[in-house]
Amino acid sequence: MILIRTETGGAVTEQFDTSMIPDDAAYWTALSGRIAEGALRRRSAMGWLASSPRAWLVAAALAGAAARGTSLAWKRAASSAAEASLTVALIPQDGLARALLEPQAPPALTALTMAPPSASENRR
């Protein structure tokens, strides 16, 4: 077993044969092409970001838009939560007030005068 010390102090105790790697020129040429292309593509992306003033503008605009979007979403969430808690606090607890707030039609007069007191009214 090969023991190669790792950075964390552990060791690799496995070692494999290389039979899964073909050894023909076409394979190595294709692999080299892929590797070089990948490395250079990465460099061109990084280089564009690092050197172009336009890249900085685009990055700044994107960052600004993201920050604005986040802050709007946060504000919206905060205000809707406050609104919801206010609504809950202001909901009338007695039957008479609930009947008055009924949106479809005004309550019948008999219902208001003859209705039995609600549990909360009894408690008071």
């Binding site: 496995e14 494999f16 892929r34 590797i35």
Partner: peptide
Amino acid sequence: LFAAQLLGDRDDAEDVVQAAFVLAVE
């Protein structure tokens, strides 16, 4: 070939070598 000896898998070996060259370029 070295990466394949350590990893035992062709795709993994190719990925590691790709990453090493990306680092070299950077």
